[in-house]
Amino acid sequence: MNDLVAKTNDATVITLQGELDVNNVEDLKTVIESELSDGTGKILIDLNKVTYMDSAALGVLVAGLKRARLSNAQFKLANVKGNVENIFKLTRLTKFFEIYNSVDSAMESF
């Protein structure tokens, strides 16, 4: 998994790609925790290029959101679609996260 962390004045965008599962989920956890520890107040996870996600990866996003809330940071998702959308719907986590159809619309919401 190659993470791409792009920081602008407005927010940190973490662009994920490929298949996220229990095997590479520690990388994702490290990236998110690192951004939250840096005091980033606005985090956007772009899932546009993610083709598959299991519950371990989903768990890391849930943990990220919970931790962000504790530090009054905003934690949003963009481009939840296809198989990725399926697992969010199956677990009813669509209502737990703020989800946007594009990075642009998510950025405007911060």
Partner: peptide
């Protein structure tokens, strides 16, 4: 219980529903 949002333990729920 999906109303209790946790960051682990979804596996059995998913298996049963898939």
């Amino acid at each position: 219980d999906l109303e209790d949002v946790q960051d682990s333990g979804l596996g059995v729920y998913l298996i049963n529903n898939l």
